[in-house]
């Protein structure tokens, strides 16, 4: 029982990270029908930015903020440079562009920082509080879940309560109609990518310190889990992505806790395939049919 409790908290913490990454993917997918395979690599790049800025300034939090800012800028730049006009491309081309960016960004990080795994400090202690002999969760876990929750609330408020959010949703659902109403659709797509880059950066800043370490390919596996979360949630809805990410975190925490940690990639594959074959529209989508 105590193990189960620990694994649950552990799963929630990792689930928050996958939820963030899933949200980053869904924000873009909804608006541009691009599944950004470079999302993980972009997030790693922002963690390297944090590393350099922290070294430079001596402040962890300035580095943290710099990573989020870098994610925002990188998202916008990637959209402008590589995915402008993605709506007129076959899906295959956009996937390949994403993969190309993935290879490019990881290689550039390798050229600048080397391929070795660099330790990356956590914001708070990663030692778990325990009650009796039951380990529960660490300060870092609380920070992880808390910061993801806050960011998601901010995004939810932005999307549903502000004029800019209304424009973004209009541009996502009906670009041409939005243009006829005076919305600058192109700019809002860029903004969506920028937000997505920021969310991805937060995910990297939270997951890299917890055992993963910082190296160019650090987010490859996390990306797959974020993707799994997004697919579990149905890819269409931000709320679904968040729930899907948390469920993925829990499922993998139990699998690696009870079967073995080397099972994680396989468990992710199994979860992904099972969800796609049994519930191709995800667990939370409405009745609309989706061809996957």
């Amino acid at each position: 029982m105590s193990r189960f409790i620990f694994l649950t908290f552990n799963g929630l913490s990792f689930g928050a990270v996958y939820a963030a990454l899933a949200l980053a993917l869904v924000l873009i997918w909804r608006t541009t029908r691009v599944l950004n395979f470079a999302q993980g690599a972009m997030a790693v790049a922002t963690a390297y930015v944090a590393l350099s800025v922290s070294d430079w300034t001596g402040s962890y939090w300035i580095g943290f903020g710099a990573a989020l800012a870098a994610g925002f800028v990188l998202g916008a730049v990637v959209e402008r440079v590589a995915f402008r006009g993605a709506d007129r491309m076959p899906p295959l081309n956009t996937i390949v562009i994403g993969v190309g960016l993935l290879i490019l960004i990881e290689a550039v990080m390798g050229m600048l920082y080397g391929s070795a795994n660099r330790g990356f400090p956590a914001a708070y202690s990663t030692r778990a509080y325990s009650v009796g002999s039951t380990a529960l969760f660490s300060k870092q876990d609380v920070f992880t879940v808390g910061s993801v929750l806050v960011l998601m609330l901010v995004i939810a408020v932005l999307l549903t309560r502000t004029p800019q959010g209304l424009r973004m949703r209009a541009a996502a659902f009906a670009p041409e109609v939005a243009r006829l109403l005076g919305v600058r659709v192109g700019r809002l797509l860029t903004l969506g990518w920028a937000l997505s880059g920021l969310v991805g950066a937060l995910a990297a800043m939270l997951v890299i310190p917890t055992g993963l370490g910082l190296f160019p390919q650090a987010m490859d596996g996390v990306f797959i889990l974020g993707f799994t979360g997004a697919v579990v949630g149905g890819l269409e809805s931000p709320v679904g992505a968040v729930v899907g990410g948390v469920l993925t975190g829990l499922a993998l925490s139990y699998a690696s806790g009870y079967i073995g940690s080397d099972i994680t990639p396989l468990a992710a594959l199994v979860l992904l395939v099972v969800v796609l074959l049994l519930r191709p529209t995800g667990l939370f989508s409405g009745s609309q049919v989706r061809r996957v």
Binding site: I97, G100, L104, V108, G110, M111, P216
Partner: peptide
């Protein structure tokens, strides 16, 4: 040299991939 040796080829392929698609 080591950093470039290990990563320059991949950087080139990644860039080529994007450029070819675009």
């Amino acid at each position: 040299a080591q950093k470039l040796h290990d990563n320059l080829p991949n950087a080139a392929f990644g860039l080529l991939l994007v450029l070819v698609m675009l």
